[in-house]
Design a protein around this nucleic acid. Sequence first.
DNA 1: TTACTTCTAACGGTTTTCAGTGATAAAAAA
DNA 2: TTTTTTATCACTGAAAACCGTTAGAAGTAA
Lengths: 223, 223
Amino acid sequence: MRKKLEKIRVHIADDHQILIDGIIAVLSAEENIEVVGFSNNGEDVLKWFTANRADVLLLDINMPKVDGIAVLQNLNELNFQPKVIVLSSYDDTKLIKEVLKIGAVGFLAKKCAGEHIVEAINKVNNGEQYFEKSIQQKLLSTFTNQSQSNDFISQDGPFFSSLTPRELEVLQLIARQYNSREISDELHISVNTVETHRKNLIAKLNVKNVVGLAIYALKNDLV
Amino acid sequence: MRKKLEKIRVHIADDHQILIDGIIAVLSAEENIEVVGFSNNGEDVLKWFTANRADVLLLDINMPKVDGIAVLQNLNELNFQPKVIVLSSYDDTKLIKEVLKIGAVGFLAKKCAGEHIVEAINKVNNGEQYFEKSIQQKLLSTFTNQSQSNDFISQDGPFFSSLTPRELEVLQLIARQYNSREISDELHISVNTVETHRKNLIAKLNVKNVVGLAIYALKNDLV
DNA sequence: TTACTTCTAACGGTTTTCAGTGATAAAAAA
DNA sequence: TTTTTTATCACTGAAAACCGTTAGAAGTAA
């Protein structure tokens, strides 16, 4: 095991510098891990990775300018792709599935303890996936529900389908306090169409009303 | 200066354990600071302080069960009161004024660097206040605006009046997707009353509709 | 005492949302 | 090519939100 000499290169991306400093402090105790860079927004992450490389990227979803989702999508075009562990304030199963689809290999809720970061970094660097036990259970339970209720709309939304581009547009405008008529003006479509999109959004995201939509938009940085 | 022997006792309250671990790691480098406890929700903070004491409390606003605001209000009843530095995701001037009114003596946005924590802890322990420069400027500018526009309703809301406890309650329930009838059930008041509160909220916060209210609630960690 | 704030409640009317249903056409995927 | 997805539009009726205004009771502060 003379691999000990090669440290795992880690980049941290989060808009809360205080959290980055904290993680750096936690990781500094690890001999085989080295923090080689950090960014406070998605744009800087992408810039950094054009000129540098890291083995593992700790990526916050909720970031200004370019959000974590967009970062993940853009990272796919790199030659040397880092293993991405997503950091999130919310252990939302939809979000987890979303980021897994687009290349993340680990997921850490910010409410977890610092020691898990070390474990996560080591695991993903070894080619494994990393999830906390609580998240594992959540994922398993939803998968179970899904297979149980295979031919009707599950509680978690219709087959976890993601939003269409148009739905996203409508959602963003809703979160900007536009009402249906204003959205129809903005997008040059009928009010009826807007209301259809709105209804589909409420169903897909499994929320109760506009408030739920707004909160979803905000939590997912769509505003 | 033989006071060096007495370390500043710090308690950290945040629902993100990962952040707590980080701050602990940062503070562990300081000889005159000792982290003597932490909590992941407001209830635990209050429990801890009934049996223990600390010089400084780093308090997150956005916490489950009992939020930071409520913690601040309850801390006033303690015999030995800690100096409270509020941690927040957003450097919202309204929120800052709110927490200053109810006893906080420092304010740290989570996007700030870890080194500021040390500075903040030392300052408030010395009886001073602590704000970042960016926040200082923000506060100054709003105070300036306030004096300039003294006798009419400013863009920032009517005289920056803060929300009443009841309005806060209603707002929180709105942000949880409750409709007026459900809120009236929950609070045991008439639907009309709820709607009055709702109208006053929309006017006070200068938003357009429920969506605006929900977003305000989320941005100010009221959810 | 007066004035102010907060909480409560109500009325009348307009606008918007929401649920359900159905339908068409183009594009994309199988 | 057939099927599915996406985007579009329409109608209805019920529920909810929104607007403006008024007003009493209770508590607090000047």
